[in-house]
């Protein structure tokens, strides 16, 4: 019995000690800019793997994932600026403070996740009637609605954005969240639940005929995916200390879809793609600095690389999303 769990236990301890090592070592090795980039990488890993559950595993093409992130970010940032800071103020400077902040952030992540999951439920229900391009456009609309509503909500800053969010999150916590998310989604993908979602992606009619409750599972994919996006939003907001509806626009959703598609639906390659796509614009920043260009060619190069990647590796990029058949992920 024990021997069975031992390798996994060793793995967890190893991951844990690596994370602690990173927490101690990284701030000494890296400057604030590099730490921030790593935080964004970890956030994008959480976002991309959770979108992978919806797009890659369940095959429900969603291009509104930034909307869920926005819900999580704004809900928790609002809570922190209005209540959270006051709640933690008496403990400022005390020995317990760091622990309390972590506990508070964990609770906050759950709340942000739940708020986003509610949004996931809202968009999951239409997904029962819509397919393919129509579903994609409904999720796009949902993301835009969230963004425009936030742009008009004065209590959370409206068009000026929400500033003054306390920096409760740290590189260590974001990395832990990323590891937990990946582990959870990995296990989910291998469970009965994940297999049912795969079956729905492959052939909904056949899945229904085999007794899989398609309505339930499709909605659940949206709810779970949205939950983790909300968690990522919470961590993002409590790291950057400033959020604006612009941070969660259509381009953010597209970036995430891109990661999932480049990753090909396979969890490991989605993580790799998340790292690559997040680092790419930063790497191009170095190129710009080295060449002393008067303009910023980063986005142009980025998009040209994207087109080139699709033209060169068109089949392999999408291997896992579309196993051996045309149009699998994006059904007609």
């Amino acid at each position: 019995m024990w021997a069975h769990y031992l390798p996994r236990l060793v793995l967890y301890v190893a991951i844990g000690s690596v994370l602690v090592g990173l927490d101690v070592g990284l701030p000494r090795l890296l400057n604030a800019y590099l730490v921030q980039i790593l935080v964004f990488v970890a956030c994008n890993i959480v976002l991309a793997t959770s979108l992978n559950l919806i797009n890659g595993i369940a095959g429900q093409f969603s291009i509104g994932h930034a909307g869920f992130m926005a819900i999580g970010a704004y809900a928790t940032a609002w809570l922190s600026t209005t209540h959270g800071q006051r709640l933690l103020a008496p403990y400022e400077g005390q020995r317990l403070e760091p622990l309390l902040i972590v506990a508070y952030l964990v609770v906050l992540m759950f709340l942000g996740g739940l708020a986003a999951a509610l949004g996931g439920l809202l968009i999951g229900l239409p997904s029962l009637r819509l397919r393919g391009d129509y579903l994609a456009i409904a999720t796009l609309g949902f993301g835009e609605i969230i963004r425009v509503l936030l742009l008009n909500l004065e209590p959370v800053g409206g068009a000026t954005g929400l500033r003054g969010i306390p920096q409760y999150s740290s590189l260590f916590l974001v990395l832990v969240a990323a590891v937990v998310t990946v582990a959870a989604l990995h296990n989910l993908g291998n469970s009965v639940h994940g297999r049912s979602l795969l079956a729905i992606r492959e052939d909904e009619t056949a899945a229904e005929a085999l007794g899989i409750d398609c309505a339930h599972y499709k909605t659940s994919a949206f709810v779970i995916g949205a939950f983790f996006a909300g968690v990522a939003g919470c961590l993002y907001a409590h790291y950057t200390q400033f959020i604006h509806p612009r941070s969660f626009d259509f381009m953010k959703s597209i970036e995430l879809v891109l990661i999932v598609v480049l990753g090909g639906g396979n969890l490991r390659s989605v993580i790799l793609a998340a790292v690559a796509i997040t680092l790419l614009p930063e790497g191009l920043r170095l190129v710009k600095g080295a060449l002393h260009l008067p303009f910023d060619p980063r986005m142009a190069i980025y998009s040209a690389l994207l087109i080139a990647a699709m033209l060169v590796r068109r089949e392999r990029v999408l291997q896992a999303v579309l196993p051996g058949r045309k149009g699998g992920g994006l059904r007609e």
């Binding site: 879809v257 891109l258 598609v261 994207l306 087109i307 699709m310 033209l311 068109r314 089949e315 990029v317 999408l318 999303v321 579309l322 045309k326 149009g327 699998g328 992920g329 994006l330």
Partner: peptide, 9 residues
């Protein structure tokens, strides 16, 4: 190629 490839392009 799959439709998704064209969409991303």
């Amino acid at each position: 190629a799959p439709r998704l490839a064209a969409l991303i392009t």
